[in-house]
Design a protein around this nucleic acid. Structure first.
Length: 838
DNA sequence: GAATGGCCCGGCTGC
DNA sequence: CGGGCCATTC
């Protein structure tokens, strides 16, 4: 680092910063442990960035002695980019900025010997882990019904996250003997394959860092003078121990987090670590950033209301000086498709008003919700990108090519070898592979190295021998070329030489076409990586690319493109958008409740998750809940999420979609929880849900529906089953609580005061015929009023549409354009005319 | 040894 | 509803 650079940077830090009091404290206080409780939108990324800049520019800390741990690679990239503007690329290149996993992978390449690995080790993902475990089950003849491999792997995973090794594993539960056996066998196989799993990356580095005897440990502990950790509320035990070990000498551990945003408990994160930081480090300086610069007043108010009932929070009060802005729209929808159509409509409006698509995001609790949203956005020609979901790198053809490349880099990796040995088909069947595995076991060699010995034996027939020998020759040849070629060239060669490309070309279907394109994209990604690495002045390698691939998170794949982003709330952590659409805010969806009866939800964490979702929005926040929703093939009827009830009335603008408004004699299934009529005080505690509402909240003195309605002042049926007929669109009068349906025994008489509920499980067939009297009335309106082109209509299934054509016949039919569907031809009597006044 | 169809089970969040 | 695994068949 040149002196002038540093001086310039120091000046830049001073002039750029404009940090407020607490922020400045967090930046300039250099030595010793420090914890920053940074509320959502309080500028913590800025603080970390400027702190690093300050360390380098003012405190003159050599950049290579600074380690900054971010939560995602994407965040690491952004931080580096910001720092480059302040410090210049030369300095930033020497900084260590990355996720725990990426950092540990990098360290492990340096200290591989101390971890008993070769430098070329492979990182196994869940799929690989499962493959290894299946192999173990087969060979040890373990009953996979009694001990599901999934559970065993999950158990091992949890143990590793706590830093427990196979040797230390203490069987104390039923079935733990099996876990113990699998654990050590699994570790042994990974070691033999020169491979590590995600947990190993951290654990192995931790072993070295905590080893007071070895020189590697000593060196590692001296490596960094300052360690900074972002999103500290989501670190696990191993990660915490690691950063403590790394700062054992200097004590310069700086952590930033928000215990309110801890949402990864299910993967080992422990929010108590940040909450107890002061206890662990009595000398630690504590800073709280409580001013939110991101969101409008109403959004902040909503966020606070959601998080306030949470327990054991670090005391802090988020506030903002931003204007109140628009209210939070809470939108009641009929179905998920109605929800999607409404989302699309609002997005369309925003886009027309000049909002950039990348300033808009749609959130959901689970990926499964994305499909319908995607369909509708596609139909509406709104540019979007789905973050995560079925990941690119999980596609079969992509994994195949990756496996080929991994075998080239690390021929010991048996799971990769098995994956590709017969793809494309080389007449090397299961039996042959089995024999090969046996041979490898006996020779205590990797399977690849057992190929030739097996060919030299008389254990297999001449055909398999030939096939195996050819495969071996092919791979050897490619490996030979791989010594000189660039990663992209190697990948291309593999595709050709292996016959993989030919296989797909021969198939010549739409699917194979798509696969070929995916492979092209993969090669493109390798080429891109080459360019990046070359630009950084380093030599691109296949191993480097493979490592990057293994450690790429879904969110890292998010492109900087003018597209609406769709993602889970988990993926949204750390991001912000001008407009946020938070969908599926219903009980059992969000808070999510697993189908698995043993799977109890962690309500506290779900609440924090909701808080994260809300705090992503800068200006506009739309929250949605649907009356019914298709979930895993069945229709689920959902109550509005309890988190909605926490929103203060003054910041909420409650709306209903037109489809919901127009829905008459709602066909609400009668769920078990409505078996009893609501009684005062019973509403909130009735066994309608597996969860009770948060402790400490007194049961409402009024029936829950009424209590909630104060919030939804347009008569929104927050408890649909109890308020079925309310909010009907027109004053045509109630249906008298009676509705008719086809078939015998299906018309139901309803007592006064009770609401009519009806099944709606045979959807398409029931369209129209199940509509009841109001439908008839509506149809009459349509015919009498006359349906024209341009008329707005509602259809039970398809939602709101615009008539593009009417076919006058004895049974008039209209062609209607529905949002999110292809044009439909529908009998006019199944349509309801929307009077535009409503 | 490969290909195809059916069945069963899981079913969230993800490095 | 969908994916993975198994059994059947060629």
């Amino acid at each position: 680092m040149q002196g002038s650079d540093a001086a310039g940077a120091a000046a830049a830090v001073q002039s750029d910063a404009e940090l407020n009091g607490p922020q400045a404290d967090a930046v300039v206080h250099v030595d010793g442990p420090m914890v920053v409780f940074a509320g959502a939108g309080s500028g913590k990324t800025r603080v970390i960035t400027y702190r690093i800049a300050n360390l380098v520019a003012t405190a003159r800390v050599p950049p290579y002695r600074i380690l900054a741990v971010t939560f995602t690679n994407k965040a690491a990239g952004e931080m580096k980019r910001r720092l480059e503007r302040i410090l210049g690329p030369e300095i930033v290149r020497d900084l260590w900025v990355g996720t725990f996993h990426a950092t540990c992978a990098r360290l492990l390449r340096r200290y591989h010997e101390a971890a008993g690995l070769e430098r070329s080790f492979t990182i196994y993902d869940d799929d690989d882990q499962r493959a290894v475990m299946n192999r173990i089950y087969k060979e040890l003849r373990i009953d996979d019904r009694r001990y599901p491999p999934r559970d065993v792997l999950g158990r091992i995973h949890r143990e590793k996250q706590e830093g427990v090794t196979a040797a230390e594993f203490h069987p104390d539960r039923f079935g733990d003997e099996v876990v113990a056996r699998c654990f050590s066998e699994y570790d042994r196989r990974l070691a033999d394959a020169n491979a590590v799993d995600f947990d190993d990356l951290l654990v192995k580095v931790l072993r070295i860092a905590e080893d007071m005897e070895s020189s590697a440990g000593d060196e590692l502990r001296r490596r960094f003078s300052h360690v900074l950790v972002d999103e500290f509320q989501d670190v696990n035990r191993v990660q915490y121990r690691l950063v403590r070990a790394l700062t054992r000498r200097t004590k310069n551990l700086f952590v930033v987090g928000d215990d309110d945003q801890s949402i990864y408990r299910w993967r080992g994160a422990d929010v108590r670590i940040v909450r107890n930081f002061k206890k662990d480090h009595p000398e630690a300086k504590v800073v709280k950033l409580e001013e939110n610069y991101r969101s409008s007043g109403n959004v902040v108010a909503a966020a606070l209301a959601v998080i306030r009932p949470a327990q054991d929070r670090e005391p802090k009060e988020l506030f903002t000086q931003n204007p109140d802005g628009d209210k939070v729209a809470v939108v009641a929808c009929a179905t998920e498709r109605d929800e999607a159509a409404y989302v699309a409509e609002r997005i369309r409006e925003l886009l027309e008003r000049g909002v950039s698509p990348d300033e808009i995001a749609i959130f959901y609790r689970v990926h499964a919700q994305s499909r319908v949203l995607e369909e509708v956005l596609r139909a509406e020609r709104i540019p979007y990108q789905v973050v995560g979901g079925v990941r690119f790198f999980e596609r079969a053809e992509v994994k195949d090519l990756v496996s080929y490349l991994r075998v080239l880099v690390n021929p010991k990796s048996d799971v990769d070898l098995v994956r590709i040995i017969n793809v494309p088909s080389r007449k090397i069947g299961d039996t042959t592979v089995e024999r090969l595995a046996q041979m490898a076991g006996e020779l205590k060699k990797p399977m690849f190295d057992a190929i030739l010995p097996l060919c030299g034996s008389d254990r297999i027939g001449p055909q398999p021998k030939k096939a195996l020998a050819r495969f071996h020759a092919m791979m050897t040849e490619i490996a030979e070329h791989a010594k000189t070629g660039s990663p992209r060239e190697i990948a291309e060669r593999v595709l050709v030489e292996s016959g993989y490309e030919q296989m797909l070309k021969d198939e010549n279907t739409d699917e194979s076409e798509g696969r070929l394109m995916n492979l092209q994209e993969l090669v493109g990604s390798i080429a891109e990586h080459e360019i990046e690495v070359l630009a950084a002045g380093e030599v691109p390698s296949l191993a480097g690319w493979l490592e990057k691939v293994a450690l790429t998170a879904t969110i890292d794949e998010m492109k900087d493109a003018p597209r609406v982003a769709m993602m889970t709330v988990h993926a949204a952590k750390g991001l912000e958008f001008s407009a946020v659409f938070l969908t599926g805010m219903e009980e059992d969806m969000f808070p999510f409740r697993s189908q698995d009866p043993s799977g109890r939800a962690d309500l506290e964490e779900e609440r924090r998750l909701a808080y994260v979702a809300v705090t992503r929005a800068r200006h506009k926040l739309f929250v949605f809940h649907a009356e019914r929703r298709m979930v895993f093939g069945g229709t689920k009827y959902g109550l509005p999420s309890r988190f909605l009830a926490d929103l203060p009335a003054p910041v909420v603008d409650a709306k209903k979609t037109e489809v919901l408004r127009a829905s008459f004699g709602r066909f609400i299934d009668r769920p078990a929880w409505s078996a009893e009529p609501p009684r005062p005080g019973a509403g909130a505690t009735a066994p309608k849900l597996a969860w009770s509402h948060p402790q400490g909240k007194p049961a409402p003195a009024v029936p829950a529906p009424m209590q909630q309605r104060s919030l939804f002042d347009d008569g929104l049926p927050v408890r649909p089953a109890f308020s079925v007929d309310e909010g009907a669109p027109s004053p045509r009068g109630r249906a008298g609580g009676l509705a008719t349906r086809r078939g015998p025994d299906r018309s139901v008489e309803v007592e006064p005061g009770e609401r009519y509920v009806e099944r709606d499980d045979d959807a398409p067939a029931a369209i129209g015929s199940g509509l009841g009297r109001r439908a008839a009335a509506a149809a009459a309106t349509v015919r009498a009023g006359g349906l024209r082109r341009g008329s707005k209509v509602v259809h039970k299934q398809f939602g709101v549409g615009v008539v593009v054509d009417v076919d006058e016949a004895p049974d008039p039919t209209a062609t209607v354009k529905f949002s999110g569907w292809t044009d439909k031809r529908i009998k006019v009597r199944f349509l309801q005319l929307l009077d535009d006044a409503s």
